[in-house]
Amino acid sequence: MGESVSTSEKRKILSRQTKRNLVAYSFIAPNFIGFCVFTLIPMAFAFALGFMKWDGSNPVQFEGLGNFTRIFQDTFFKAALRNTIIYCLGTVPLTMIASLALAILLNQKIIGRGIFRTLAFFPYIASLVAITSVWKMLFHPTKGPINNILFNVFGVEQKNLPQWFSGGLVLLSMILFSVWKYMGYYMVIYLAGLQGISAELYEAAALDGADAWGKFRYVTWPQLRATTFFVVVMLTINCFKIYDVAVMLAGGGSGELTPSSTVLVYYIYQKAFVDWDLGYSSAVSMVLFVLVLIVTVVQFTIEAKQDR
């Protein structure tokens, strides 16, 4: 008797749990189905394609590691890899420092704070096509106001005026542009982090006689560690996938890049959608993936060590 009651009760609980599962899945399903079909499946496919040879219409051939041995003899690839890494090394620290400094300034009680914050965020929302064409005008080698000032005010000779978007300076221009465009975004993230620091910590530091630098060194910086970690990871990932900044600042009429300005994603695009060498292109994207993975793992390890 007692036993049968407990089984029926069990069944009831079980079905209630099933019902709860179903409700939960019904919430997730609309997003998850889309996410699964359009993100997870292509992702898995990308790994496989790196070991294949395929032009998109003829049958797929197994290539093994062939694509990867080809990659490391490819000078254009090496240029793209080198430029992408240099771009990251320049952009990540500069953007981080600029956005942190700006956030600290704009977290104080200041007249016109809202306006300053909005202005700092403006470049982030501006579309690249529009704003890069302004930059190309401002930094135009012969007619632009920047070189005009260098010529008229600083007396730089005509033949020495910098060519901002070709040759050796192009990476620098890309870095400066990116810092300008994206610092507002990371500033907002830092602002959110700063607002989470309790005022008591600053009061305690003031009682201990800390000056502005001391407060930053012993309160702000350690308290912002999680934020900084997030900012650096996001910045690095975003820097590795640079494409449109390069094409729009340094690309010629139809957007083609030279070895001095090429980046990894540009090469992936060219190999896939211009040359239809899909396997090779996927092999290049695997390199991009591994780079991002290494950086993320390294940063996670550092973060975990500091936590202890």
Binding site: F38, S285, M286
Partner: peptide, 24 residues
């Protein structure tokens, strides 16, 4: 399920844009 989401956040779209295009 949530791990599946988290794992892809760090994955740039550019890594799988080619197979995604073929599929679509």
């Amino acid at each position: 399920l949530f791990m599946a989401y988290i794992a892809t956040i760090a994955m740039p779209w550019q890594v799988y844009m080619v197979p995604q295009f073929i599929m679509l």
